[in-house]
Amino acid sequence: MQLLIFYVFGFIAIFAAVSMIVVKQPVMSALFLIVNMLCLAGLYALLDAHLIAALQVIVYAGAIMVLVLFVIMLLNLREKKGLITRHKVAMQGIGVVIVAFVFVLIAASMDFVSFSQAGAVSAEFGTVAGVAKTLFTDFILPFEIASVLLLVAIIGAVILSKSRT
């Protein structure tokens, strides 16, 4: 049953990712990326990461992708060139070589991954309480630095998008 759910989410995720880089309109790309992120949220839930699954839907598929769609509609783009263009053969070649390299790395890593069966987890694993306990004890300094980072990003975005007058 878990394997079936994994296959369904996994194949939809790969299909959406391939469609994302193949379709011409940026709006379609953004919508396919949202499908991909929702499938990954399902996989996170399958991995008992309940909080991360909720964050994936709310922050990634919700907030960030709405921002991207908003910019696409603001710029009103109409792209003529799709994935394949004549003088980009070298770029395509680099991409294919990197893909092949990643697959070789995956195949090489198959043997020494010995802990391939998941054990039982504690009741708190992946819940809001469990993640918060880890976050606010061992990782309190990175958490505070992340808040500063978000503040800097807000100020930077406002300054960058302000028209120069």
């Binding site: 991909n36 990197i98 893909v99």
Partner: peptide, 17 residues
């Protein structure tokens, strides 16, 4: 998925994609 992302970065010209 990572490899598909790399192919997208090196082969598309639209900065949003």
């Amino acid at each position: 998925l990572f490899a598909i992302g790399v192919v997208g970065v090196v082969s598309r010209r639209n900065v949003i994609v």
